[in-house]
Design a protein around this nucleic acid. Structure first.
Length: 171
DNA sequence: GCCAACGTTGGC
DNA sequence: GCCAACGTTGGC
């Protein structure tokens, strides 16, 4: 029997989940499988931060996308495992994510934790995503789209789970 | 390695 | 408030 995911209520009738990008040379789905859980450090984009802070809910699922990779594509599935909280790396002068303009009293950057759900049986390449007519409009397929955290509609999520041979199904 | 697209910064 | 310059992302 497939495991079942209950997603939280959609925002504006469209959100069912997320897509999170990571360069696998930095942190891959295999790394998440090994660690089981990770703090998503280093997001330094306001829109992505706002998604984490305002719209993500614990239990939401996220497609784990390998970017700048050969091939790039969706490698697996993760789950939002915490609420948003200040990203400690913004205060760490030795971190590549250090932000001297952020203060501890008014932290600028947030993170959430993600938990491992699965590595897809079938890696879904960007080329396959592009070739799927039913995924038209998906954010990751838009030209010039660089946002590292994106909303994914329930319809698109279900299609990608199918393409990946996911053991999870949406309710 | 190239470069288009994008977000941010800062001069004015 | 405008916009040129810059740094970064990420596909190719």
């Amino acid at each position: 029997m497939p495991k079942t995911i209950t997603t939280t209520k959609p925002i504006a009738g469209s959100r069912a989940g997320w897509l999170i990008k990571s360069e696998p040379s930095v942190f891959s789905i295999e790394d998440l499988q090994r660690d089981q859980r990770t703090a998503w450090e280093g997001v330094r984009n306001y829109q992505a931060r706002n998604f984490m802070r305002d719209a993500m809910a614990e239990g939401d699922v996220a497609l784990f996308y390998h970017s700048s990779s050969e091939p790039s594509g969706v490698a697996g599935l993760a789950r939002v495992a915490s609420r948003a909280r200040p990203d400690p790396t913004q205060f760490d002068p030795t971190s590549p994510y250090f932000d001297a303009t952020s203060s501890r009293t008014e932290p600028r950057w947030q993170l959430v934790e993600f938990a491992y759900l699965e590595r897809f049986a079938n890696f879904v390449s960007l080329a396959e995503l592009k070739a799927c007519a039913d995924l038209e409009g998906m954010a990751v397929l838009q030209k010039g789209q660089r946002l590292s955290i994106q909303m994914v509609s329930k319809e698109h999520l279900a299609i990608v789970l199918g393409m990946g041979g996911s053991t999870h199904t949406l309710t």
